[in-house]
């Protein structure tokens, strides 16, 4: 268990709702949920979630801290925003799902093997490096995120699609040598670092 997680458990004791309101993006909205279930019924991958949004909201109020933060559910959000536009109480559900996933990561208790968790982290690392996404490197790191053997299998399975992309000039094998980048990389990275520091200070206090 990470230090931040331990200190958060101590700080909020049995009041998980309060913890979510204080630390999760848009978390102050959770208590507004009236349990109608429209979000759960509107979710494209909803049938695959152990706990659809409506249930997560009730679990937060019921103090089921570990079950919520360790859940794979919110990692299956496709960001389609169906739930947001249909919610009669206008909760920013998509953002709360992202917020819960990020908060679990910050505490180090996220489901480590959930594939979208891995991909989302790869995506962030990829863009934070040069300021712009390198699709080739992102694709390769995605194929190999479950190890070398699995990676070779996935890469071979995807070779047809890759060739199609290269032939139509929608993928460039030369991107492996560096690829697109912002010019002011130094300023860009300093900005991200500052934003991360400011945010960490807010959560830790």
């Amino acid at each position: 268990m990470s230090d931040t997680n331990t200190s958060m458990v101590e700080k909020y004791r049995n009041n998980f709702l309060k913890e979510v309101e204080a630390n999760v993006e848009e978390g102050e909205w959770v208590k507004m949920c009236m349990q109608c279930g429209v979000c759960s019924g509107s979710c494209p991958l909803g049938p695959h979630w152990d706990h659809p949004p409506q249930e997560l909201f009730m679990m937060i109020r019921a103090g089921k801290r570990d079950e919520v933060l360790e859940s794979t559910s919110m990692w299956m959000c496709t960001s389609c925003y169906n739930c947001i536009v249909r919610c009669p109480r206008e909760l920013p559900i998509t953002h709360i799902m992202h917020g819960l996933a990020h908060y679990a990561t910050r505490l180090g208790i996220e489901p480590k093997n959930q594939p979208t968790r891995k991909f989302a982290q790869l995506f962030w690392d990829n863009l934070a490096r040069n300021g712009r996404v390198n699709e080739l490197k992102l694709g390769i790191s995605l194929y190999f995120m479950n190890g070398i053997v699995e990676g070779i299998k996935t890469a071979l399975g995807m070779a047809g699609i890759g060739m199609g992309m290269v032939k139509t000039k929608r993928m460039n094998p030369m991107e492996i040598l560096g690829g697109h980048t912002v010019k002011d990389k130094k300023g860009f990275q300093a900005m991200i670092k500052k934003a991360q520091e400011l945010e960490a200070a807010r959560v830790d206090n």
Partner: peptide, 17 residues
Amino acid sequence: WNCCSASIGYCGGGELP
């Protein structure tokens, strides 16, 4: 210009970043 982090940047990137 730089990447917007699309809708999948939330794992590594918190709200402010």
